[in-house]
Design a protein around this nucleic acid. Structure first.
Lengths: 168, 168
DNA sequence: TATTGTTATACTCTATAACTATA
DNA sequence: TATAGTTATAGAGTATAACAATA
């Protein structure tokens, strides 16, 4: 019985493990490729990718932070690394003196396109090749549904915490 | 044109991004939960989980290393942390004097079951709830196919590296 | 007062290479 | 020689809290 105890049946667990295994293997492969081809971490690549896709290659720190990093200081650190590498420059925003606008340099854009082909190839080889077009559409639809649900629900609701027994 | 340039069409990219978004949000949520409920990282949780599932709660270092960590020293570090916390003990293997056998302590088992309900609840809330049973079966089947493909292909084959232009 | 962003600090984690000991 | 594991070391990344400046 134990009707209150949360549990997952083997089918649900298997789906979860399969998803996380794919996720971590894919992430590891991508990280390797980005490091080898362009000396970038995946966070740094994401920042550059966003800037590449932004109008005139500039974004405010706050806009950059969104899905990429979980703390402001983390973003400051990463943008600092990119700036030291000459891939990005920081300047004060025109409207609001508090904001900092991050701009992609020519070197930054070059680096992005230097790394992109290998990145695409890794994704293709590991994820796209083994699935056909309709599989990918299905996968996307499932993941989109999960994302919608995640974003609707409060990220960390008031979950009753079990008693913290020992400390370590 | 550019028939040699690797590329992904928007559908394929969308599937990739949706998958990685779910993966990273899920991973982050799990990491938070494990830390709050039991002061464990996900790597530490995986180690303990494997030991819990092993006969008599013991495994050799080498066996533990498999899917969890990408370097031997990384495993040594994590097992060291767990040992300091009293969740695990190390001993010399009975057959081969070179091997180290890691054994789960009673406290380690307690910690696992202390953390498990919250873990299950996060997975259910974020992944299982928004999908029905047949969705999960589909997801599992897709991911298993990808995993099979990943494991068949050489992890990092001889991919031609683009010219490393600047250094940073 | 609230918001934007940085800094100081401290900690966790990881990987490489050199090393020890056993097979 | 090969394998199992540890250690030393050094670097990358992260989060929290205190801080400065502007709105």
């Amino acid at each position: 019985m134990t009707p209150d105890a949360p549990h997952l049946d083997p089918e649900q667990l298997a789906a979860y493990f399969a998803l996380t295994d794919v996720g971590s293997l894919l992430q590891y492969a991508v990280e390797q490729q980005l490091r080898e081809d362009g000396d970038l971490s995946s966070v740094q690549f994401q920042i550059i990718a966003r800037l590449t896709g932004a109008p005139s290659g500039r974004l405010r720190m706050t806009d950059l932070a969104d899905g990429i990093v979980y703390s402001r200081s983390g973003l400051t650190y990463q943008v600092g690394v990119l700036e030291k590498a000459g891939l990005v420059v920081r300047g004060t925003g025109p409207d609001d003196e508090r904001t900092v606008v991050v701009s992609l340099t020519a070197a930054g854009r070059d680096r992005f396109f230097q790394v992109l082909p290998g990145h695409v190839e890794v994704v293709r080889r590991l994820l796209v090749d083994p699935l056909d077009r309709s599989d990918l559409a299905t996968l996307r639809s499932l993941m989109d549904r999960v994302l919608t649900h995640m974003r609707a629900a409060p990220p960390r609701s008031a979950r009753p915490r079990p008693p913290r027994k020992p400390s370590a």
